[in-house]
Write a protein that binds this DNA or RNA. Structure first.
Length: 257
DNA sequence: ATGGCCGCTATGAGCGGA
């Protein structure tokens, strides 16, 4: 099974690229982030024409996540269901081919010390609380998404410049580590230890040509699923050319379970 | 060349992203 996660930065604005990308790579299941539309505005027809089904958790204008798969998506869950009042659409889950697939869009956090930063840290704690019981029992988990956290300095093109800043601060790294330390595996890092790999490059300042990137998009897998990983890579080619997203997709290849 | 922000909105300027 080929799984991918991609912050598409507007599924309508990126429709041609997204369709071409699906045709070329034929992933079995994709976690999308920043669809930037309400559920009924998602362009279902071109996805269905390629044989995909789509579940969304969207909102107007901002954020929004989806799962796209070549087959049935069951037990769809939108949000955390934790009783917290939260108008932002940032998580959707569904079971596909025996795997609990989760698409997450962790808040950006704006800057350390802001209200949005505090919301980000709370959100990561809510994610931890959501994951814990689902890791203890149930189908294997694949949590793909834009986590907006570079886990280590290796994941940052200029660690000194970014030290203590949003995406790299200790509190964010600790909050993400608390999720991972439940027993998940950062699949891309596990497949490429010690290698500087990035998934996002700023549109400004020649970020991509100069490779001024960060690794903030991750696939976290439960142990049983991590054991099935045969390869993981960043699709840097998708960041090239006309009108790209500022994020590149991450692919994971899984052996049959 | 992999190129100088982009997508969104009760748009046409301002906000948010990371």
């Amino acid at each position: 099974m080929k799984l991918a996660t991609w912050n598409v930065n507007g599924v309508r604005a990126r429709l041609d690229r997204a369709v071409g990308w699906l045709e070329r790579h034929a992933p079995d299941v994709v976690c999308l982030q920043e669809i930037k539309c309400e559920d009924d505005k998602f362009p279902h027809a071109p996805f269905e024409a390629l044989g995909y089904r789509v579940v969304t958790c969207g909102q107007k204008g901002f954020h929004g996540v989806a799962i796209v798969a070549r087959g049935e998506l069951s037990d769809v869950e939108r949000g955390f269901g934790d009783g917290v009042e939260d108008a932002q659409a940032r998580v959707v889950s569904a079971t596909f081919a025996g795997v609990r697939v989760v698409s997450v869009y962790v808040p950006n956090g704006e800057a350390v010390g802001t209200d949005k930063y505090a919301y980000k840290l709370r959100w990561l704690e809510r994610l931890r609380a959501w994951v814990a019981p689902r890791l203890a029992s149930g189908p294997p988990l694949a949590i793909g998404g834009d986590y907006n956290v570079a886990p280590a300095d290796l994941d940052v093109h200029d660690p000194a410049a970014w030290a203590g800043k949003v995406l790299c601060s200790e509190a964010e790294r600790t909050a993400l580590a608390r999720v991972i330390d439940l027993g998940l595996v950062d699949v891309l890092r596990a497949q490429h230890p010690g290698e500087a790999l990035y998934t996002w490059w700023d549109y400004r300042m020649l970020g991509f040509p100069k490779n001024l990137g960060m690794r903030i998009d991750h696939v976290l897998a439960s142990p049983a699923l991590a054991a099935r990983v045969t390869a993981a890579w960043v699709d840097r080619d998708e960041r090239k050319g006309a009108l790209p997203s500022d994020h590149a997709p991450v692919f994971v290849e899984l052996a049959d379970g």
